[in-house]
Design a protein around this nucleic acid. Structure first.
Lengths: 222, 222
DNA sequence: ACCTGAACACCGTTCAAGT
DNA sequence: ACCTGAACACCGTTCAAGT
């Protein structure tokens, strides 16, 4: 028997906490009921079923991420700040973000960021369909990178890891890896990547290319 | 009773087929046993448990994707061909790819592509740590884009969709969307994206930026 | 309006027993 | 070496019944 009356908000809170503490797999209706000190079936009265519960949880996460306030003096700088903010917020909620992704709502979660990107791309001088392409390209790049990064963190031990592939063979002239004659490159690939650096480097390169393209195409002809 | 003796390969084949036909959720040990006409427990003898079965399935998928043969006359063209090949192969196996991702093996699946990328980046004149950065940036971009694209396809109906956000408001001067005064941009964002076009456009922009950076940095100083 | 326990149909996995 | 059924501990969900 629950001391105070059970509320929908209380259920969502407990569910979110369960996911945060023990991962998405731990969120079962029965464990949740035990956590709340109620019968399993009470939960059904408040949230319908497990599917709806997950939907509500995801919706909460999306709301939590809030609006984006870009910072910086140039459009490129401000777009980079948007990327950095998104990365930080995502990394604070790894489990919930995974759930958002599994439910196919990743795009929806990034709509506020899209608004910010539109503003910056416009400020950089891009217009029309070309501006829309730039916005979407950057958006896909940011979201995609974060998904890959999270995926990579979750499984640190991979059968043939990069480090195996690119580590120098036993003999100096050895050779399964199709590495060209560039030991420094091989060494760099054998080292673990620095995701933050790679992230900013990638976004900056893409943004610069897209904005330069647009600017160049305005004065000159097609 | 199975007519012929049950083999591990047979189990994997049936499991893959089940996933392909009815999605990952349909792959339960009991359904698989029914499909094969054996007792559930026989499967355990051949593959250990469900976890190992999934591992083996993922391994199979990774092997199936095979080596990458780039085509084209310039490094940029050849890198784009790698991207196109990866996209096509991934889209042929949507369910299995989702499983690969969930198990954190996306990176591993793209190792053959990494080898091809290293070759092309080298051919374009990049060396050392800078070449490694370029390889990883392109790799993350391709993989990330494909994950986002798949995610987007899986849930076509999103609460506030892009089309809602950017559609022209009722009155001509209306206004919740923070869209700058660029109706063509708004219209472009309200239309569904063309993923193939966006994919190639993005990869091309990033690759050109990365390769130009490298080339420019060789003759000039730091 | 809210909560309950019993019951149903499903899981993955273990184990002792068969051949 | 390979296969089996029975059993265990878990699921999500429904439903009739309580207050």
């Amino acid at each position: 028997m629950a001391r105070t009356a059970l509320t929908r908000a209380e259920v969502l809170e407990a569910a979110a906490s369960l996911v945060k503490r023990h991962g998405p797999a731990a969120l079962t209706m029965r464990r949740l009921a035990a956590e709340l000190g109620t019968a399993v079936t009470s939960i059904y009265w408040h949230v319908g079923n497990r599917e709806s519960l997950l939907d509500a949880l995801v919706e909460r996460t999306v709301q939590d991420m809030g609006a984006i306030r870009p910072a910086g003096r140039t459009p490129v700088e401000r777009i980079l700040s948007v990327a950095r903010i998104l990365r930080r917020e995502l990394r604070e909620r790894p489990h919930l973000i995974a759930m958002v992704h599994e439910r196919g709502l990743t795009e929806r979660m990034f709509l506020p960021a899209q608004q910010a990107l539109v503003h910056e791309v416009h400020a950089a001088g891009l217009r029309g369909a070309r501006a829309a392409d730039a916005v979407r390209a950057v958006q896909f790049q940011i979201v995609g990178f974060l998904l890959v990064e999270r995926n990579r963190e979750r499984s640190p031990a991979q059968s043939p890891a990069e480090s195996d592939l690119w580590a120098p063979p036993a003999g100096s002239a050895g050779g399964t890896p199709a590495a060209p004659d560039d030991p420094e490159l091989a060494r760099a690939l054998a080292r673990p990547a620095d995701p933050e650096r790679l992230f900013l480097l990638s976004v900056r390169a893409l943004v610069q290319a897209l904005l330069a393209d647009g600017a160049a195409s305005r004065p000159a002809s097609r």
